[in-house]
Design a protein around this nucleic acid. Structure first.
Lengths: 229, 229
DNA sequence: AGCTCGCCTGATCGATCTATAAAGGATCTT
DNA sequence: AAGATCCTTTATAGATCGATCAGGCGAGCT
C-alpha cells in the first residue's frame, strides 16, 4: 500500500535492495515468531512490519516454515558467534572460572537475543518437528557439553554433587527468563531489561546466586559480593 | 461428527452434562493455550480435543478471548489454593525457613501446573491487553510480596544485599522452566519432568542452589546436601 | 534498441478462522 | 400433552490464512 518508508531515504543511488528486503523480512520474522510463536504469526504481519507486500515473503522464502527455519539459523549463528570456541579460549582457566565466564556470556547473549529464549520456550513446551529440527542443529549437544563441564567440576570436588541437568536448566532459565518476559518485568517491577546497567546487575546476581547462594553463611566475608543497585 | 467418546460410558443415568462439556472445553483450552499461545490456538482444535463441536465453545463462552480469561482464572484459583494463606501458616518460622517452604511450594506448583508458566512466558514476552489483565488479577502483587519478603530477610542480615527483583525472577524461572519446556528436557537430557522423583530432585536442587550455591565452599560440610540421582 | 533476468506487486484461490443463526432433542414444569 | 428451557448440532457468513500466478519494472548485456 503506502508503507515503503525509506525508499526516499536511500535517495537516487538506486542500489539493489534485494538483500535489503530479505533482511528486513528476516528481522520482522524474528520479532513476530518470538512474540507470537509459529502458529500465531502470519506472513502478512511479517510483511507489514518489514514494509513489503505479503507475496514478497514467499518470493524470498519458499514457505512460512522455511522462513522460520532460516530465522532460527540466524539466531544460531549469533549464538555460535558468542559461544563458538569459547572453551578453547578459556582452556587455561580452572573449571570454576570457566563456568563463571560461560554464565556471564549466557546472560549477555540472553539479553541481546531474547528472541532465542522465547522461541525455545515456545517450541520446547509443545515439542514437535520444529523442536526436533532446532535441537538437531547443535544446541542440544552444546547443552550436554555444558552439563559435562559441570559434572567434571563436581568430580573434581569444586562443585557439589547435584543433578547437573537440573543445574544447567536452572542456570539457563535464570539467565534468560528476565529477558524473555521483558514486558512483565517492566510492568511488575518497573525494570527495563534493555538497560545495560540492569544487564550487568543481572549477570552479577546470577553468578553470585548460583555459585555462592543468597544466604549469608555465618562469617565468611567473601570478597566478590558486588550486588548492584 | 463421530467423537462423543463417553456418551455410552455415562450409561442410561441421563444426568446433565452441561457442566461436563464446559469442563472438558476448559481443560482442552488450557492445554491448547499453554502449548500454542493465544493467537496460535483455534476454537476448532479446542472443540476437537474436548470431543464437542466448535459452536459449543461459543455457547459456553462468549468469545475466544473470554474463554482465555476463564481458563487463566481457573489457573489462578489453583495458585490461590496452593499459596493462599501460606504466609499466615508459616508465620512462626524465620524468614529463611519461610522462603525455603515457599520455594519448594513454587516448584511443586510449577510441576503440577506447567501451563501457568507457559502462558506467563507467552504473554509476558509480548505484553498487551491480556498480560495487563492477567497481572491485574493478583499475581503481580503477590510477586512484589515475595520480593518484600526477600528484602526483609536481607535487612535482617540473613540474605546478601542483592537486587531482589532479579533474585525473585531467577527463583521463579529456575523453579518453573524445566516444567515449561517439558518436551525439550525429555529430548535433550532424557528427563521426564512428570516423574515425582524428578520433581523432588528439582526442588532439592533449586533450594540448594539458591540458598547455598553450587560451589563447595572450603570445609563447611553442610548437612542438607541431598543431591538426588 | 531490444532482450533477458532478478525483484517486486496486484489479484486471487482454496482452506481455515471466529462467530452467528436456526433448528433438533432431552428434560422439566404445569 | 403442551410448552418452556437448556444443551447441542448442522449450516453458514465474513474475515483472514498461506500460497500461487501473471505481469510490471529496472538494470545490464548484446
Amino acid at each position: 500500500m503506502a508503507q515503503r518508508a525509506d525508499e526516499a531515504v536511500r535517495g537516487s543511488k538506486g542500489e539493489h535492495d534485494s538483500e535489503r528486503s530479505r533482511d528486513r523480512i528476516l528481522a520482522a520474522a524474528l520479532e513476530e515468531f518470538a512474540s507470537k510463536g509459529f502458529e500465531g504469526t502470519t506472513t502478512a504481519e511479517i510483511a507489514r512490519r518489514a514494509g513489503v507486500t505479503q507475496p514478497l515473503v514467499h518470493y524470498h522464502f519458499e514457505s512460512k516454515d522455511e522462513l522460520w527455519r532460516t530465522t532460527v539459523l540466524h539466531l544460531l549463528d549469533a549464538a555460535e558467534a558468542t559461544f563458538g570456541g569459547v572453551l578453547a579460549e578459556l582452556s587455561d582457566l580452572d573449571h570454576l572460572d570457566k563456568l563463571k565466564v560461560l554464565v556471564r556470556r549466557l546472560v549477555y547473549f540472553s539479553a541481546t537475543h531474547p528472541e532465542f529464549g522465547r522461541i525455545l520456550a515456545y517450541e520446547g513446551a509443545k515439542g514437535g518437528e520444529r523442536l526436533s529440527w532446532l535441537l538437531a542443529q547443535q544446541p542440544a549437544s552444546e547443552a550436554r557439553l555444558f552439563v559435562e563441564l559441570l559434572e567434571s567440576a563436581a568430580q573434581e570436588g569444586v562443585l557439589k554433587p547435584l543433578p547437573m541437568a537440573h543445574v544447567a536448566a536452572c542456570i539457563g532459565a535464570a539467565s534468560a527468563y528476565v529477558f524473555v518476559i521483558r514486558e512483565m518485568m517492566r510492568t511488575v517491577y518497573g525494570i527495563d531489561v534493555d538497560d545495560p546497567t540492569v544487564i550487568d546487575a543481572h549477570a552479577n546476581t546470577v553468578v553470585e546466586l548460583f555459585f555462592h547462594g543468597m544466604t549469608v553463611e555465618d562469617a565468611s566475608a567473601r570478597s566478590g559480593t558486588k550486588g548492584a543497585a
